[in-house]
Design a protein around this nucleic acid. Structure first.
Length: 477
DNA sequence: TGAAATGTTGGGGCG
DNA sequence: ACGCCCCAACATTTC
């Protein structure tokens, strides 16, 4: 009886899982394993919200495997030692996994693969995480793309070659083993202090929840995605980002769902597929420019003297900046582990371009609080906003929180939901309470500086200030 | 996947 | 009927 190990990492699904399929095809018995080795992620080991999600997703995967006659083995790292030990215990002759693209994961996997091979084991990695692997997309001159549109155009030229997702196996078997497994609870992923009620209410981690989210989205929101995706007050987005991050869903499944719902394309489906493209682009950049996790791609930005102000940073983190749309976003993040992407850009712009604080401060906070925290997407997003990344927003692109709020939360529903202390203000002042006359504030029960903060910075002045600071970069180019 | 300043155009009020 | 002014709406430029 031949035995194959499937090493689950961030591909916590049974559908469209190439490593699982390959293992099943090549051996009589498949042993699924998850290895807990956060130290192997280096400085970007999962934050609190990610760990919360992982706990639940692993629990879900274990249940799904049980249903199919299999049984998940959980072990602690180091990964290589754990795999060798497991191979010894099971007599496995091969190890299969799906590739990751973070620098630390690439280095670890490379070392693991060569060590396994050196000990006579077969080690095989697959693509289960991307539509286009980073080294397959390049400019005419053979360089990586640094601008999204031409990158995506090149990708789309071969999009028809992407294989349709494969169905999950009905039965996997092999679960009768008596292999030791660390109880999930012992991994200490779930919070000890119960701050996670809001997360639990908002999300269903695991493959069934992922499929449900994708299905709900394609049914209810895909057609209007082009129009509604920028609206934080509307359920206009897919909310599949954490599912994609943990691989409870493959991008191929998302692509296929969009095409199935709108065979001819359609603006909603096209806009959605384009967003999948940004995810691809983020991974492309991270693969080719791994130093960007903590260093600006545009080297001139290393000279910038970002401000440090722990009180202001704390106000930003807690949703107490005095800008309703910013505070609404930061509170949505804290409460649900997620923030609408339009609002992410607004809060990031305020931090980096009005408060002029280092984008890494924001990246770290997002990393700890987002359930979809993803090194590729987070790095691209923050460098884009700060203006120091590939295809970045130019330094003079500063979001005006009031205008953005007017445009994308016209009904004030988003603000009223997350900033209840402003809910009674008339529409006119909800996005800019500092401009409201005293009697309107009093009537709404708002006392500036007491029930709701005064703005932490003056947007006009700080914008001009930031532009001056950035100007020095241009001069030194 | 900006905002603000500046420029242009065209309709309507009015003498 | 005409020119003038105002200004909203839109386009372009600049940061």
């Amino acid at each position: 009886m031949s035995v194959a190990i499937v090493w689950f990492r961030r591909d916590l699904r049974l559908t469209d899982n190439p490593a699982l399929e390959e293992a099943r095809a090549s051996a009589d018995v498949v042993v699924p394993v998850y290895l807990h080795a956060p130290e192997e992620d280096g400085r970007w080991s999962p934050g609190a919200a990610s760990r919360w999600w992982l706990h639940r997703s692993l629990s879900s995967l274990a249940a799904d495997l049980d249903q199919r006659g299999s049984r998940l083995v959980i072990r602690r790292g180091p990964s290589l030692e754990a795999l060798l030990q497991l191979a010894k215990e099971t007599g496995a002759t091969s190890v299969h996994w799906n590739r990751l693209y973070e620098p630390a994961a690439i280095a670890r996997d490379r070392a693991v693969k060569s060590a396994l091979v050196a000990r006579g084991l077969h080690a095989a990695s697959q693509n289960g995480h991307l539509l286009f692997e980073p080294w397959t997309v390049q400019t005419r001159s053979g360089d990586p793309y640094r601008v999204f549109t031409p990158f995506w155009k090149t990708c789309m030229a071969s999009v028809d070659g992407i294989a349709p997702p494969r169905a999950a196996p009905r039965r996997i078997g092999g679960g009768e083993h008596a292999l030791a497994s660390v109880p999930l609870e012992e991994l200490d992923l779930a919070p000890r202090i119960r701050w996670d009620a809001g997360l639990a209410e908002a999300w269903q981690p695991g493959e069934p929840g992922a499929l449900k989210a994708l299905d709900t989205f394609t049914r209810d929101a895909l057609a209007d995605y082009g129009r509604d995706r920028d609206r934080p007050d509307v359920a206009g987005t897919s909310r599949i980002s954490p599912h994609l991050h943990f691989g409870e869903l493959s991008p191929r499944q998302a692509l296929a769902a969009a095409r199935q719902a709108a065979p001819g394309g359609g603006t909603g489906a096209d806009a959605f597929v384009r967003e999948l493209g940004w995810r691809e682009f983020a991974h492309h950049l991270l693969y080719h420019y791994p130093h960007t996790v903590d260093t600006p791609l545009d080297g001139r930005f290393e000279r910038l003297d970002w401000r440090r102000d722990t009180a202001q940073l704390a106000a930003w983190q807690r949703g107490l900046t005095g800008y309703p749309v910013v505070d609404a976003g930061m509170r949505e993040l804290w409460h649900t582990g997620w923030m609408h992407n339009r609002v992410r850009m607004v809060v990031a712009s305020l931090l980096t371009k009005n408060l002029f604080m280092h984008w890494l401060e924001g990246a770290r906070w997002f990393w700890d609080t987002l359930v979809d925290a993803d090194l590729a997407n987070n790095t691209l997003g923050w460098q884009w906003t700060a203006g120091c990344g590939a295809d970045a927003a130019p330094y003079y692109r500063v979001f005006n929180p009031v205008l953005q709020a007017e445009k994308f939360d016209p009904g004030r529903h988003y603000i009223r939901r997350w900033i209840p202390e402003l809910a009674a203000l008339p529409d006119r002042w909800v996005h800019c309470p500092w401009a409201a006359p005293a009697d309107a504030l009093a009537a709404a029960g708002v006392t500036p500086g007491v029930t709701y903060p005064e703005p932490i910075v003056d947007p006009r002045g700080s914008r001009d200030d930031a532009l001056r600071r950035f100007e020095a970069l241009k001069a030194g180019a």
